[in-house]
Design a protein around this nucleic acid. Structure first.
Lengths: 185, 185
DNA sequence: TCCGGAATGTAGCGGTTGCTACATTCGTGC
DNA sequence: GCACGAATGTAGCAACCGCTACATTCCGGA
């Protein structure tokens, strides 16, 4: 028989996949249980409540994305903001990364509306992104580096947002145009 | 006795206010009815169903924002993308406009998740924003003008998004940094 | 072999959702 | 004054929500 911890791990992975595939739309306890191939009764046995299950799954998703980002653009070599913006836009529009961005939009929106687990998650992920960007910027002044990281993150997130509202071609054209951006000084 | 059309108009206005004040969180039929000072039975008498009521209210909100944008930056005088980006960022962070941006984020997220009335609304509003920006850009080439408008919209929306995830000060610093952006050529 | 605790199933609670059937009140034209 | 349609209230439906009480099954240790 599989122990509770094992099942919890397995369910977490399946839930993460489910989130990436369908977003936050199908996250009722019964729907999550079905996606994890488990009865709803058992889902709430493995996790104390729905928020814990969702939080665990989101954590798994974030870790996955973290690894992917690290692989795509290893830390260590710093670059000017123009190049980092282009790289970030490129990565964010990769087919494998786009489910993450879509989910990310939903989390942000849920956080904006103050839904319980999401506000904390959004804050945590945002600061993670910001420091990821900052450690790759070759800007000396910390304040300017931080502000620039914010602007780059805003632009990349905004491109994902544009894709939702105006379609992929428009977003792609705008991402292309982002290559013409220069930061002064 | 007030006729159905009158009530419908009044309820639409109140619903628009409710949406701006509380977002999409409290949009069950009963909650909307309470906000409109009307019984839920009557709300569904004035409108055929919930989607129609929400759509009407969102339309009212959009029209309101449209007027505000027109007043803040009248059409007619075209400007370089750098200045328009700065102006747009300034307008989007005005206290009176921020409820619109917050609601806008939620609509986009709902659209991303494919919820019924929101996908259409998001598309309509996005193209409205894009053309608003385009008609104020002094770029000759239509394709470049369109792509630039998309990038400006993405940046402004992204700043609103950053505010949710990282707080107002970080978003403000990034918005400030957006003044240093130059477009080439 | 049996016992105890972990794992699992069954059933259902109280609440909210969007929506509607039915009855009643109301104002107006005749 | 009365009839008729518009306007409104009352009550409730079936589906879903998160969660849980209770019973049962299962397996390892004594």
């Amino acid at each position: 028989m599989t122990t509770r911890e094992e099942q919890r791990r397995k369910v977490t992975e399946r839930l993460a996949g489910h989130l990436l595939a369908t977003g936050l739309a199908r996250t009722s306890v019964r729907q999550m249980a079905a996606a994890a191939q488990v009865s709803d009764r058992m889902l709430l046995y493995y996790f104390n409540d729905k928020a814990e299950a969702l939080g665990e799954a989101m954590g798994h998703v974030v870790a996955q994305l973290g690894g992917r980002l690290e692989a795509a653009l290893p830390a260590g070599d710093r670059m000017p903001p123009e190049r980092l913006l282009a790289e970030a836009a490129r990565i964010a529009t990769e087919p494998e990364v786009r489910p993450f961005m879509a989910l990310w939009m939903e989390v942000i929106a849920a956080a904006a509306r103050g839904e319980a687990p999401y506000a904390g998650i959004a804050r945590q992920v945002t600061t993670g992104f910001l420091s990821w960007i900052e450690t790759r910027l070759d800007i000396e002044d910390p304040e300017r580096r931080n502000a620039t990281a914010g602007l780059i993150l805003a632009t990349v997130d905004g491109l994902a947002l544009l894709e939702i509202g105006a379609g992929a071609p428009a977003a792609l054209a705008a991402a292309e145009r982002a290559r013409d951006v220069r930061f002064t000084p």
